[in-house]
Simulated scan of single mutants.
Amino acid sequence: MFFSLRELTAWLGVTVLEVFIWLTALLVTLVLVVLRMENVMPSVSWWLVISPMFIADALNTYFCVIVLIRMYLDGVFKPAALRALWSFSVLTLGFTFKFLLCRKLTDGSQLEYSVVMSPVFVLLQLILIRACHLK
């Protein structure tokens, strides 16, 4: 019923460290969202609430650059380029979604929900293609 860690990392194209960073940032962000919604911290902006997710994206980008450089120095050019392309596209789509979500939450009715969710839909299609490619 549940995916194993090996299947999850293969389908998403990320490492265990990246998953750990994302889950830690998600936990901190969810705690901040609850605190803001329960009026414990009503004056905190949405940008500050979702900032752990942006920090996680920055850490994962830094990690991907290090992996790219190490793979390039080891002479593994094609897999390094493919991994970098995949990782940076996932990170870019995730960052875009979070940015648009913050804009929607702060501005109100400026953006439609379909525009905010479009990077997630593209990311799901890419994961679907990758999952079909692996089997």
Rank of each mutant, 00 (worst) to 15 (best):
S114Q: 08
R70Y: 05
I21L: 15
G13Q: 00
F3P: 09
S118W: 04
M41Q: 13
I66K: 06
T96D: 02
R130F: 04
R6M: 05
M41P: 02
F99C: 09
A56D: 10
H133S: 11
L91E: 01
R130W: 02
L134V: 05
S89L: 05
A84N: 02
K135E: 02
L5C: 09
L5E: 14
E7K: 10
F99N: 07
A131S: 12
V122K: 00
L30M: 14
I69F: 06
F54H: 13
T29I: 12
A84E: 00
A84P: 04
T61M: 08
S43V: 14
I129G: 01
V16Y: 05
L8E: 12
F63H: 12
T61I: 10
Y113T: 06
I21Y: 07
V16N: 07
I50T: 12
F77T: 10
L59A: 14
M53I: 15
T106N: 09
E112N: 07
L32Q: 13
L101K: 05
T15I: 05
S109E: 11
L35A: 14
L128P: 01
L27M: 15
I127L: 14
L82P: 01
M1H: 13
V40Y: 15
V116K: 00
V44N: 05
I69N: 03
L48G: 15
L26H: 07
P79L: 03
I129P: 03
V16I: 14
A80S: 15
W11M: 06
V76K: 15
I69S: 04
W47T: 09
V28H: 09
L134E: 04
M53A: 12
A84V: 00
M41N: 13
K78W: 06
V65H: 02
I55F: 15
V120G: 01
V116L: 00
F63P: 00
T24C: 05
R83M: 07
E112I: 00
V65L: 11
A56I: 08
L12N: 01
L68R: 08
I21G: 03
T29A: 13
A25G: 11
D74T: 09
F63L: 05
L93A: 05
S109Y: 13
F88K: 02
